[in-house]
Measured scan of single mutants.
Amino acid sequence: QLNAMAHQIQEMFPQVPYHLVLQDLQLTRSVEITTDNILEGRIQVP
């Protein structure tokens, strides 16, 4: 299920590496919260 959620987020934010999306999802278990984390700059994109 997390993989499906990660792919959904990757479609919206292809610039964010998959492993970072998955790592955040493991903590949040939420597409909405992880999306917010990306938008708020809480996930550092190399």
Score class of each variant (00 low, 15 high):
D36P: 01
Y18R: 08
D36Q: 15
E40C: 13
V31A: 08
A4I: 12
V16G: 00
Q26G: 07
I38Q: 00
I9T: 02
I38T: 01
L25R: 00
T34R: 01
L25A: 00
R42F: 06
R29Q: 13
V31H: 05
N37K: 06
T35F: 07
I9V: 09
I38S: 01
T35D: 01
I38F: 04
Q8R: 14
V16W: 08
T35K: 12
V31M: 10
L2Y: 09
Q26E: 12
I33Q: 12
P14G: 05
L20T: 05
M12E: 06
Y18G: 06
M5Q: 06
R42M: 06
F13N: 03
L2F: 11
Q15W: 15
T28S: 07
M5V: 06
V45L: 12
I33N: 07
E32K: 14
E32H: 08
Q15G: 11
Q23E: 12
R29G: 13
V21A: 05
Q15K: 10
Q10G: 08
L20H: 05
V21D: 01
E11V: 13
V21P: 01
Q10N: 10
M12G: 04
P17L: 06
S30F: 03
V21F: 03
F13R: 01
L20W: 08
L39H: 06
I9G: 01
I38P: 00
I43K: 02
E11M: 15
E32G: 08
I43P: 01
Q1F: 12
E11A: 14
Q8D: 07
Q23V: 07
L39V: 09
L22T: 03
H19Y: 13
L2G: 02
F13W: 06
A6W: 07
A4D: 09
Q23I: 10
L27W: 11
A6Q: 03
N3T: 13
L39N: 07
D24P: 05
D36V: 15
Q10L: 14
V45Y: 13
I33M: 11
R42P: 00
Q15Y: 15
R42K: 08
Q15F: 13
E32D: 09
V16C: 11
Y18D: 03
P46M: 12
E32M: 10
M5N: 04
G41N: 07
V21R: 00
L39E: 05
M12Q: 10
R42D: 02
A6Y: 05
P46I: 12
Q23M: 12
G41F: 06
H19R: 07
P17W: 06
Q10P: 00
P14K: 05
A4E: 12
N37R: 09
G41D: 04
V31C: 09
L27M: 12
M12T: 07
P14W: 04
F13S: 01
S30H: 03
R29C: 12
T34V: 02
T34G: 01
T35W: 07
V16M: 10
H19F: 11
T34Y: 00
Y18E: 05
V16T: 04
L2A: 04
R29P: 01
T34P: 00
I38W: 04
N3M: 15
R29L: 14
G41K: 06
I43N: 02
E32Q: 13
M5H: 04
D36W: 15
I9W: 02
L22I: 11
Q44N: 10
H7N: 11
